[in-house]
């Protein structure tokens, strides 16, 4: 009898199969540059040859999404929100200190599936990705740059709101260049399969924000103070380059999972 029961149980277990995949929950952490000691400024030489000492570097990430869209297939015309491609989401914001190498957990748990993830999206927003305006400070930086004996103490707070509206490409495409596209940094290559209970980290390298910034073009706002403009239409190279650096999907941001080399 026992043998029969065991056989039936094994058969039953054998019959219980799955539709494949699973739903998962995970933790997302942000980390600053691991080369920096906590509380210490970050010194580096930018791509344009400026010696930069960064004393404040904070970025507000409203949400993070993972998807299975191949980064190579992203197009300018695709809408901000795709359908049926997402594999993970963390729907809670964090103002991440990029000068703090210790893990900074996002305030909400991430949810998703174990389907193959190919790309990540950083949503730089204070809340609504479709809002016509948003005064949330997305980037807050301060430091000193020097080159050839000249010094530019700088600071800057960037928002992504009405100040960043880009006109449509042509009159036949009034919906092209929606503001939400300005707020989404994507595709950030991230190939993984999310696992239940796992931890994902987003590493922020603030050096990449300044890689192409010509500090000499900064607007002087005081005796020895320069400031990045928050005006999206500013013609100054430094203003445009920092904003472009903030939104660069290659360089400033890297996703990893514990156990992999940062």
């Amino acid at each position: 009898m026992k043998r029969l029961t065991l056989t039936l149980a094994l058969l039953l277990v054998g019959c219980v199969q799955s539709t494949g995949g699973q739903l998962v929950s995970f933790v997302l952490e942000g980390r600053g540059d691991p080369a920096v000691a906590t509380g210490q400024p970050l010194r580096f030489t930018s791509g344009r040859g400026f010696d930069v000492t960064l004393t404040r570097a904070k970025v507000t990430v409203g949400a993070v999404y993972f998807n299975r869209q191949n980064p190579q297939s992203y197009t300018l015309e695709q809408s901000c929100v795709q359908t049926g491609v997402y594999t993970g989401e963390v729907r809670g914001g964090l103002t991440l200190d990029a000068l703090d190498p210790t893990p900074q957990p996002f305030p909400v748990e991430g949810h998703g599936t174990d389907a193959q993830t190919l790309a990540a999206e950083l949503w730089l927003t204070g809340g609504d990705i479709l809002a016509t305006d948003d005064q949330t400070p997305i980037l807050d930086v301060e430091g000193v740059a020097s080159q050839g004996g000249s010094t530019w103490p700088f600071s800057g707070v960037l928002t992504i709101g009405a100040n960043r509206v880009v006109p449509p490409r042509n009159t036949a495409l009034p919906g092209s260049n929606p503001l939400c596209q300005q707020r989404i940094v994507a595709p950030i290559a991230f190939e993984t399969q999310l696992a239940q209970g796992s931890t994902v980290q987003v590493l922020v390298d603030p050096r990449a924000w300044f890689a192409d910034v010509d500090f000499s073009s900064l607007a002087q706002v005081g005796a020895r103070q320069y400031q990045f403009s928050n005006d999206g239409s500013s013609p100054r190279q430094a203003d445009q380059a920092l904003y472009n650096g903030l939104r660069a999907f290659v360089g400033p941001y890297r996703f990893t999972t514990p156990g992999t080399t940062p």
């Binding site: 929100v81 795709q82 359908t83 479709l130 490409r169 036949a172 009034p174 919906g175």
Partner: peptide, 15 residues
């Protein structure tokens, strides 16, 4: 509110 994506030829709209 998921599938009303913004198409380039459309007037800008929310979902």
């Amino acid at each position: 509110f998921l599938h009303d994506v913004q198409l380039p030829q459309q007037t800008p709209h929310e979902q």
